[in-house]
Simulated scan of single mutants.
Amino acid sequence: MSTQNQLDYERIAKAIEYIRSNFKLQPSLDEVAENIHLSPSHFQKMFSDWAGTSPKKFLQFISLEHAKSLLKEASLFDAAFETGLSSTSRLHDLFVKIEGMSPAEYKNGGKSLNINYSFSESPFGKVIAASTEKGVCYMAFENEKQKALGDLQARFPNASFTERQDEFQKNALSIFNKDWNQLNTIKLHLKGTDFQLKVWESLLAIPMGKLSTYGNLAGKIGYPNASRAVGTAIGSNPVAFLIPCHRVIQSSGKIGGYMWGSDRKQMIIGWESSQVYSDF
């Protein structure tokens, strides 16, 4: 993402924040454009280039009613859960394979691990991706490089780190491109308890453009009374976007929290919906 594209992203984020704050007033295109200091025509084009749909249509995608309608489509979620697919076949049959780290790797803070990491741009801001010799172990949205690296090192305090982008990272980052048919199987090498790994695997079954709830997810993995524990496991997800914790919302249809910011979560949900539904 160029400096200009990063500026566009920041303006779009500000526009969506404004829309969220003033949703009940149904702000017009002119009002939103004025708030981010752009002409209506420039804002319309910039937004459509980013989201693949108009600001008005995007507003529908991030509305409470749209979220509620997605939660009703349980059959699609069930089908995806059974097949292990992370999205609808209309877009791509992406399969993400998770391999848990060994007990020793888990307990000793990655002492035996050599971790490569790199910084990239995405439609949702700057992102850090990191990988071991077995797959991607970490991915997070963060604008500040030093903080991003510090957060990574805190997860693996005894590992060795090298700034280098390898094939695992390249393959994972290609998820942000729109030509999803070119994706190969993405491999993850994650540090987590058995319960966390089970929750993260269940997140992969939520189709792109669809949503689920904490309670629904708890039932799917066989712990119907563990919604809070499931929520905690979701909140500790170490791989942004690829493991789609952003697709889990409250049963009321409210978006809820997100490790990388609720505004970004809203943007991702709307963006994914626009990829699936904008041409319907």
Rank of each mutant, 00 (worst) to 15 (best):
A226P: 01
S202K: 11
A172C: 06
Q266N: 12
Q6F: 11
S262F: 08
S89K: 06
T213H: 06
E121D: 08
W200D: 05
C137S: 14
W271G: 13
L91R: 06
H66A: 14
I268C: 10
Q60G: 13
G261P: 14
S118R: 02
T232W: 02
A13P: 01
G110L: 01
S278K: 14
I36F: 02
E142C: 13
D279I: 14
Q153N: 04
Q146C: 09
I234V: 06
L203S: 12
T88N: 15
S160P: 00
H42Y: 07
P157M: 11
Y106A: 14
M208F: 08
E34C: 12
A129Q: 01
F168W: 07
A13L: 12
R164A: 13
I221S: 05
A159I: 02
A74Y: 07
P123D: 10
C245T: 10
L85K: 09
Q196V: 04
W50C: 11
K198G: 00
A79P: 04
H92A: 03
K254C: 02
A67T: 06
G270M: 01
I12R: 14
Q153S: 06
Q146F: 09
L94Y: 08
I255K: 09
T185W: 03
S174A: 04
L64S: 13
Y9R: 15
H189T: 01
E121G: 07
F280T: 12
S2T: 10
S86D: 12
M259G: 13
T83Y: 02
D166I: 00
I12W: 06
R90E: 12
G100L: 07
G270V: 03
E31Q: 07
P224V: 11
I243S: 03
P27W: 01
I269P: 00
V248W: 02
S274R: 10
N158D: 10
T132Y: 01
N158E: 12
T213Q: 10
T3W: 10
M208T: 07
S236I: 01
I234S: 01
C137H: 07
G84A: 09
I115Y: 06
D78A: 05
M259A: 14
L29W: 05
M259Q: 13
R20G: 05
K111M: 02
Q4D: 09
Q153H: 06
N237L: 15
S2K: 09
K111W: 03
Y138N: 02
L71G: 04
Y223C: 12
T3E: 14
I115F: 04
E17C: 14
F81P: 03
N116A: 08
K147L: 04
L29H: 11
K265L: 05
L183I: 04
E73D: 15
Q275A: 15
T232F: 00
S120R: 10
T83M: 07
F168V: 04
S41C: 10
S278D: 05
S274Q: 06
D93P: 03
H66Q: 15
Y117D: 01
T232M: 00
S86E: 13
E105V: 01
V32Q: 08
M46P: 12
E73N: 13
S160M: 05
K254L: 01
W200H: 15
L149Q: 05
L242N: 13
N158V: 07
S28T: 08
K57F: 04
K187R: 15
L76F: 04
F195H: 08
S274Y: 05
D179P: 02
S131H: 00
E272R: 12
V199K: 06
V248G: 03
L149K: 06
D263P: 09
V136R: 04
L94S: 12
A172Q: 03
V199P: 00
S75R: 15
W200M: 14
S69C: 00
